[in-house]
Design a protein around this nucleic acid. Structure first.
Lengths: 147, 147
DNA sequence: ACAGTGTATTATGTCATATAGTACACTGAG
DNA sequence: CTCAGTGTACTATATGACATAATACACTGT
């Protein structure tokens, strides 16, 4: 059974995309969770594609294996990846994502708070709408990649 | 010198608005920072208005004075409040807020990430635009209050 | 003088995080 | 079967942020 897609070469490139900031207040495992999420959401990592093993990513990032494992566990819990014991960890299909209404409302509330702050700081309404427009364009790019 | 506005009665109401969740992963002082910011941004706390003293808020929330102090220090650093030794702590004018370009781009980036996640989870574009629209209406309410 | 304010300091305990080391079960390739 | 590679589990330890406790000082207006 071959699930690794285009193999180690592509995997390497993906690994190199991780950006860790040890000085950040964000914990390392959180940064890994967010990075992998980002790669999946933007389509850099595609459905059913294999992601680096716990030990491999551990060596690449010079981070303890337990920390990677914690991140993967969280990602699996959220439905973004799934694991097959003895084989590896793979990107789950978006269709298999649980419909998490609480998560949706939480994220929306978060967006509202951020927008409020931008208003208060002095950002114009248009400047904020612009973010949405840019994202709409990017999104069509993702769709093109998927074809 | 009287800066307390409409006095202790109004102050009481403001204090009662604080919502602390000890079970949250968010630290207490962060929750206080966010709560005060929220009250200022939405206009519940107006410019030059006095906010509860460290010791008073400490008693009301059953939280250590040092924790309140830490929150106030952070709020002062961010430019939302200012303190006068021996007098108290007051809401700063938005005009005095430092133009923090980094903060702006950080918050915008954060909004983008959140929107991306909503897309991936399965939210429609309209559902996200709706947040912006609702906020626009609310904003006119804030402006009305300010008049 | 006094009460109320902000501020500073030291000490203590708790918890999440990250690391270290070890062990076990599973898989595919040889 | 043997072996390397995979995920997983567990204990132990160190570190730092967080929160509390207790105390002290300087300033303000009454």
């Amino acid at each position: 059974m071959r699930r690794c897609g285009s193999g180690a070469c592509r995997l390497r490139r993906v690994i190199d995309m991780f950006q860790l900031d040890l000085k950040s207040r964000k914990s390392i495992y959180e940064q890994i969770v967010d990075n992998v999420k980002e790669l999946i959401i933007t389509g850099m990592l595609k459905t059913e594609e294999k992601i680096p093993s716990v030990r491999e990513l551990s060596k690449t990032l010079t981070v303890n294996p337990n920390t990677i494992q914690k991140a993967y566990r969280e990602l699996e819990y959220q439905g973004y990846i799934y694991t097959v014991s003895g084989l590896g960890t793979f990107v789950a299909s978006p269709a298999e994502l649980p419909i998490d209404e609480k998560r949706v409302s939480d994220v929306k509330a978060h967006i509202r708070e951020n927008m409020k702050e931008l208003f208060y700081i002095g950002c114009s309404l248009d400047s904020i709408k612009k973010i949405l427009d840019e994202l709409t364009e990017e999104r069509s790019d993702w769709n093109d990649k998927g074809k």
